[in-house]
Design a protein around this nucleic acid. Structure first.
Lengths: 149, 149
DNA sequence: GTGATTGCAAAGCGTTTGCACCGTA
DNA sequence: TACGGTGCAAACGCTTTGCAATCAC
């Protein structure tokens, strides 16, 4: 798994560079939102980010959280996570073709590669007549910590 | 594919029987909502069902649509469909272990069996240490009608 | 300096709840 | 007749928008 390989500090720097190179300014509200999300191993929604980021910068407005999420999503630095009970949370993510793995207990989110889908896609294509362009695959379960409790 | 095998009339009858056997009453608002969803080949949200059902029963309230959806979901006669831009639409469905196939153009929804995932799940399990309990797989593309246009 | 970005307040939107009336069983 | 179900209106929670003040560049 690549979960353990992620260097959060690099991610943070990378996001800031991306914003700058697109001409966006680096403000304190944006920094604290980035700090929360770039270091999180689970998907967070706007309110969770807001609560967490206000500990560092108490005058942060919820509106700025939404606007920062908008920018980060536009730059493809984060992605929405769909979950049975809600699909408005965000996780850092996504280089190349990866799929999500979510812990039902603690929310820990990991990615995995899933190239093995090609034969299945071919089968479904020919059976259904669909031209399959995209797919979503998510696994749910218990992470190694939570399953042993 | 099983899309063509579905008998909409049977589905409608089946849903009504299920409601009755759970002690729910069969009212006109419920009937028109069922008529819309049981005969739909694509996922519909509350507002779409409302608009469509009011053509048959103009005094229908939007609230009754929500309340009927609640019952149908509870009885596992319909399921929520998650879509990149919204996850509050519903489709008739789901017997056994099936996955969704959605047309990006017309919204046509079909199901397919996906047992081929077992080896992938085994791999991801052992790599990640997760105990994988559940999964979501959806394909997006163009149905046979839309791709030829 | 200047224009992007901010926080506030208000509006917007989809969904849920309280309630008195209605209609199914 | 009894009580589950209804539509209306209001409340609700989350997200977006308008705006004057502010701050990064």
């Amino acid at each position: 798994m690549n979960e353990s390989k992620i260097c959060y500090e690099d991610r943070r720097e990378n996001w800031i560079d991306s914003l700058r190179s697109r001409g966006y300014r680096l403000t304190e509200p944006r920094q604290v939102v980035i700090d929360v999300l770039a270091y999180s191993s689970r998907a967070l929604n706007a309110a969770e980010i807001y609560d967490s980021a206000r500990k560092k910068y108490s005058s942060l407005g919820l509106v700025s959280v939404y606007r920062t999420l908008e920018k980060l999503e536009e730059l493809e630095l984060i992605q929405k996570v769909h979950h049975p009970d809600g699909c408005q949370s965000y996780i850092a993510g996504f280089t190349g073709h990866q799929h999500l793995l979510l812990c039902n207990e603690c929310g820990l989110t990991a990615f995995f590669e899933g190239d093995d889908l090609v034969p299945l896609i071919d089968n479904v294509s020919s059976d259904s007549g669909f031209d399959i362009q995209d797919h979503w695959l998510q696994f749910f379960g218990l992470c190694s910590n939570c399953k042993s409790v």
